[in-house]
Design a protein around this nucleic acid. Structure first.
Lengths: 185, 185
DNA sequence: AGTATCATGTAAGAGGTTACATGATTTT
DNA sequence: AAAATCATGTAACCTCTTACATGATACT
C-alpha cells in the first residue's frame, strides 16, 4: 500500500479502468487502436505499471474466471484508485501544465466525466483559458523581440507553437458553451 | 567514440550549438527563458547529456579561457556532430512522428536552417502535410464511429486533438509559401 | 552580512525501451 | 502446417528526476 503518485501512464490506466475491469492486454489494445496511441503499448511499460498500481492499492486483480485456459488477469479500480484519479483530474491548472504537459491536461479533462467530476469541466476550461491567454502573451512578446533575428525555419517553428496554443484557446472558449452557465447572483 | 543515437534532448543541444560554442549553463538558460521550456533545465539531465555527446565525438569541450575564475566549460560541435544533426533533421516524416513526436518534428524543422539544410524545408512541409492529412482522416473516422458513444469530456478532448492537428496542417500549407516554388519541368 | 546568480557536477531511484521467453488458440 | 493473434511477464539497459554538494562573484 505504498502511496507514491502514479505517472501519466498510471493515471491513463486508472482512467481507462473507470468504465469497468479490463486486462493488461485490453488496455494495450486501446493504446494500439485509438487516438491514445501517444502512449506506448509495450508490455514492458504496462504490466509493471499495473503491478505498481496494485501494490499501491489503487487497483485489484483477479484471474478472469470466464476462461479456464490461458491466464487472463482482470484489473479493477478500487475506491482508493477512483479517489486518486478524481484528485488528479481536479487539480488546478498551472503555467507548468500548459508549457510542458498539455497531453496530461487533456487526459485529465477527458476523464472528468468518468470520474464523476463533470461539474468541474466548465471551471477547468475557464482556468485553461486564462492560463493559455497568459502564456500566449509571453509567446507573442518573445516572438516580437526575437523573431526578427531568428532564422526562417526557427521562426516558423515558433509560429507553429503559437498557432497550436491559439487552437487550444479557441477550443477552451468554444467548449464552455457545452456546459450549463453558472448564474451570477 | 561510441555512436549511439542521441535522445531528443541530445539533438536539441546539438542544434543549440549550431550558432557557436556555449556552456552547459548557457544551454540551460535557453530552456529556462525561451519557448524551448518543454525541455527540462535540470543539471542532472543536461550535464550528463553533454558528456554523452562528447564521448560520442559529436561535441568537444574546453575550459573557457576568458575567465580564470570559476571553471566554465565551453562545448562546440564537431564535424561529426554537425553531420549527425543534419542526418537527424533530414529524416523522412513518418506517421509515428506525427502521432507521438510532434515536438521532435518541429525541432527538426527549426534546425533546418542552422544545419545548412534550408533546401529541405519545402519538402519537409509537403511531407508533413501529406502525413497530417492521412492521420486527420483516421482521427475523423474514429470520431465519427466512436464519438457518439463517448462521454462529453472525452469527446471534447478528442476534438481538441483534431483541432490541434488541423492547426498543424494549416501551418504546414501556409508555410510552404515562404520558400521558392520548385519548377515542374 | 545575507541573498541571488553564476557554474558544474554526482548519487539514488524511478520509469521507460527493447528484446526475449513462453505457450495456447484461431485463422489461412 | 504455418502464421497471426491472444496474453502475460522478465531482464538489461538507458535516461531522466530529485536532491544534494560545492564554491565564487555580484548585488542590496
Amino acid at each position: 500500500m505504498k502511496t507514491s503518485t502514479p505517472t501519466l501512464l498510471g493515471h491513463a490506466l486508472l482512467g481507462l479502468l473507470l468504465p469497468g475491469p479490463a486486462s493488461g492486454y485490453d488496455l494495450r489494445q486501446i493504446f494500439v487502436r485509438t487516438p491514445m496511441a501517444s502512449f506506448s503499448d509495450s508490455p514492458g511499460a504496462i504490466y509493471p505499471a499495473l503491478a505498481r498500481l496494485e501494490k499501491g492499492g489503487l487497483v485489484t486483480s483477479r484471474v478472469d474466471p470466464s476462461t479456464g485456459l490461458r491466464l487472463r488477469r482482470l484489473y479493477a479500480l478500487t475506491e482508493a484508485g477512483r479517489n486518486r484519479l478524481r484528485a488528479w483530474v481536479a487539480q488546478p491548472i498551472t503555467r507548468e501544465d500548459v508549457v510542458s504537459d498539455m497531453d496530461g491536461l487533456l487526459l485529465r479533462f477527458a476523464f472528468l466525466d468518468g470520474a464523476g467530476a463533470t461539474a468541474r469541466a466548465p471551471t477547468f476550461l475557464r482556468e485553461l483559458q486564462v492560463t493559455l491567454e497568459a502564456y500566449l502573451s509571453e509567446l507573442r512578446a518573445y516572438l516580437a523581440k526575437h523573431g526578427p533575428v531568428t532564422p526562417l525555419t526557427g521562426r516558423l517553428a515558433l509560429e507553429n507553437g503559437l498557432r497550436g496554443y491559439e487552437a487550444h484557446l479557441r477550443w477552451a472558449m468554444r467548449s464552455q458553451a457545452s456546459f450549463p452557465a453558472i448564474e451570477t447572483p
